[in-house]
């Protein structure tokens, strides 16, 4: 399919299995085609992808197919932003971060792993006030479910049956907590995570070998900050 044919399909309001097939084909095209193709698709395609994701997230009763489509959409967004052009377009659309944060669901471990990795990557590219945008998106998303903004991340970190999710969540914690230049803000974010449940589970996390690198980063930065303090 050409990029315009995908745009037409997405605009036609297809859903369920037809949408899933279209999105899987789009994911492959976004991954394998040159950036110019992604560029062409992106003009209208990004907005349409976000529209579909928003529609799925707004559905009161989410069927299994809806969750599959959400996951496929996240994979399309990741493929789309895997180049400088797509990344700039995603960061340029304020809905992107909010919809990514809203799609975080500790019960859907594979999708949450991918979302959290995307947010961590976006957080460390050094784009101006990106940290504030991510925190704002997480706050708004959490408030919709009457939760603290970091609660889903700590919940993901506790899931011993999903080690990839645990690693991704610890990466996001490190990405967020090391972002501020201001020492007080770094300490504030770290303490917020600790209060939100991280303090209680840190001792048991040491048992998980896959987390060694991220826990080392977390402790080193905590140490550096207390010395600076």
């Amino acid at each position: 399919l050409s990029s315009q044919e995908y745009v037409h399909e997405l605009r036609s309001g297809i859903s369920e299995d037809k949408l899933l097939n279209c999105l899987e084909s789009l994911r492959v095209s976004l991954t394998s085609n040159p950036v110019s193709w992604v560029n062409n698709f992106g003009h209208e395609g990004l907005g349409l992808l976000l529209d579909v994701l928003e529609r799925l997230l707004d559905k009161k009763q989410q069927e299994n197919i809806d969750k599959k489509n959400q996951h496929k959409l996240i994979q399309c967004l990741k493929a789309f932003m895997n180049n400088k052009y797509g990344l700039q377009r995603i960061l340029g659309d304020e809905r992107s971060l909010l919809l990514l944060a809203r799609a975080i669901d500790p019960k859907q471990t594979n999708m949450m792993t991918e979302i959290v990795k995307i947010l961590s990557a976006v957080c460390i590219i050094g784009e101006e006030n990106i940290l504030d945008k991510i925190l704002a998106a997480m706050t708004i998303a959490a408030e919709r479910n009457n939760k603290e903004r970091f609660a889903p991340i700590v919940e993901g970190l506790e899931n011993h049956e999903a080690q990839q999710l645990q690693v991704a969540c610890m990466q996001l914690i490190n990405a967020l907590v090391t972002s501020p230049d201001d020492l007080d803000f770094r300490i504030h974010l770290r303490n917020e995570f600790l209060r939100c449940g991280l303090k209680k589970i840190l001792p048991e996390l040491k048992e998980t070998e896959e987390l060694d690198i991220q826990l080392k980063v977390f402790n080193e930065n905590k140490e550096e900050d207390s010395i600076e303090l």
Partner: peptide, 26 residues
């Protein structure tokens, strides 16, 4: 240079290895 793909992949590798966090503010 704008046509370079793999931007997210390399960011994610830097996160995975911990390299992303070394001297983040220097």
């Amino acid at each position: 240079e704008g046509d370079e793909t793999g931007v997210m992949d390399s960011l994610m590798e830097a996160l995975q290895s911990g390299a992303a966090f070394r001297d983040r503010r220097k």
